[in-house]
Simulated scan of single mutants.
Amino acid sequence: MMKEQLLSGKIALVTGSGRGIGRAIAEHLASLGCSIAIHGRRENGPSEYGEGGTLQDVASELKETYGVNVESFRADLIDPLETTRLIANIEEKLGPLDFAILNAGGDIGAQGGKPSPNDCVGIPPEDVQAVMNNNFLSTVYTCQAVARGMIERRAGGIITISSTAAFVSQEHAAIYSASKAAVVHYTRSLASQLRPYNITVNSIAPGDTRTARYLATRDVPSERLENGTLDRVAQVGEVSRVVEFFVSSLGDFVSGQVLRVDGAGQCWPA
């Protein structure tokens, strides 16, 4: 089978796919013949860092470029009822989901942007709740909504996106790192529960990754961007190719795993 048809006939949801890593994953899966549900909380989310206009624009571009069915959807994943409705809406328009890649999240406080202060002691309670909602609870609610149908069909694959921040101490971005650690442990537990139903559940933990948001919010030394070695920032395609492994036949017997995409480096300070 040609690579272009590797995922022909399959359907995937990629949350937070209007821009950044999520968009790269969605585009890579579309290039392999997979139908895609583009998701975001806000219709104009892709425009925030200059990566596009609207969610619909992203869907239209992928559909035109790769000739697969692509639809855009808006939902706030920290609301379990809204998340359940999202999955029902996707499956009504595209069909039963084969894969769900849970990418939505970030170190985002209650008012947007990074919490300030953002340490272990000083971070405000409302920001603690927002960061846990955006990363951990949104993952739990989406996994629950997706897994119900996959259990009935006794097939499927779920991939959560964690972070290398889950594995190292973070004096700054402490709650974010804790939320991503929670995602890792939940992923492993879910994998055990869904094993009898032939559903794989894995996590990808990227290190610093070159997205428009990353470049806009950090002062990154040029030597960390493109130096031809492992001592650099990851490219979004390097995360997307790991997704391909997990959803292809190569990953059929791989579940409950967490794969770091960081060139064997540590997570650099946020």
Rank of each mutant, 00 (worst) to 15 (best):
A59M: 08
L250A: 13
S72G: 11
T160D: 06
A155Y: 04
A264S: 15
P115A: 01
P80T: 14
Q111N: 13
A24Y: 02
S72R: 03
R218D: 09
V184S: 10
C143T: 12
G251Y: 00
I38S: 08
L259C: 11
G20D: 04
V121K: 14
S35F: 02
A182P: 04
I25A: 14
L32D: 10
N44A: 05
A174V: 09
L81E: 14
L55P: 08
Q235E: 15
A165Q: 05
A75S: 13
R74P: 01
Y214N: 10
A165C: 09
L29T: 07
S116G: 01
I175R: 02
K10P: 09
S192W: 14
E64P: 04
R224H: 13
R19S: 15
V233D: 07
G109I: 03
P196S: 13
Q111Y: 05
Q5E: 00
L62M: 14
R23E: 14
Y186I: 04
R154L: 03
H28Q: 15
T209H: 10
R85W: 07
G52K: 10
V131Q: 12
K180I: 02
D231K: 14
T229Y: 10
V261F: 00
A181Y: 02
G122S: 08
T54S: 13
Y186K: 03
T65N: 09
G50K: 06
S138M: 01
I161C: 05
A104E: 04
G9F: 00
P96G: 10
A24W: 01
Q129I: 00
P196D: 10
L97W: 03
A191P: 06
A178E: 00
A88I: 00
N69K: 15
G113L: 05
A88D: 15
S116Q: 07
I158D: 04
L215Y: 02
S31E: 07
V184G: 01
T15C: 05
I204T: 13
F99Q: 04
M2T: 11
P269L: 06
A270P: 12
V14G: 06
G109F: 02
G113C: 02
T160H: 12
L6D: 06
L137H: 09
L250R: 08
F99H: 14
N133G: 14
I87N: 07
A212P: 05
A30K: 10
K63P: 05
G113Y: 04
T160Q: 09
P96H: 12
E238C: 11
A110N: 12
G109M: 01
D107R: 04
D219E: 13
V168Y: 09
G263A: 14
P124W: 01
Q266F: 12
Q170M: 14
T83K: 06
L6S: 11
R213W: 10
K180M: 07
A191M: 08
T211C: 12
A166P: 06
M150R: 00
D76C: 12
R232Y: 02
I158W: 05
I90Q: 06
T229C: 13
R224I: 00
I36Q: 06
S169E: 11
Y214L: 07
I151G: 14
G33E: 06
T209Q: 13
T84F: 01
E92I: 04
I123Y: 03
A216P: 01
S31I: 05
I108R: 08
A59Y: 05
V258Y: 09
D231A: 15
Y141E: 02
G18L: 07
G156T: 15
K93E: 03
A30N: 06
S138P: 09
V146A: 13
P115R: 10
A216G: 06
Q193P: 02
A173H: 08
R153P: 10
R42V: 09
G95D: 07
